[in-house]
Amino acid sequence: MKVPILRLRDILLTSIQVEMSDEDAVAFQTDLLRTLAKTEVKGIVIDITGLSVVDSFLARVVKETATMAQMLGAEVVLTGMRPEVAIVLTEMGRELLGVETALNLEQGFHKIQLLIEGRAR
């Protein structure tokens, strides 16, 4: 399963639409970072509306991806987390995810632009 990565000006937009296995998550991370390095964008928005489970492995991959992207000069915002996923992630330990989030794609888009501006200053 390959997650499409779209470029919109200086942002990469990506939406995970199906459940991810550990292998899928690692492949997605590699693909995203390669695309980031190639396109030299300043931000990444990852929409997870399609994910009904974010377990400790996936949370860690997302957190690591955000850290790696920041090392490559880009900001990351996670959008579209389902309320029940937020509940369970909090019960598991909030520090598990540790990445900027926004309710939906529109708010995420706004937030990533603010983060990019903040970094440029």
Binding site: S52, V53, V54, D55, R82, E84, V85, I87, V88, E91, M92
Partner: peptide
């Protein structure tokens, strides 16, 4: 929430 707790 319980479905998600169990699945996780």
């Amino acid at each position: 929430a319980d479905q998600t707790r169990l699945a996780t």
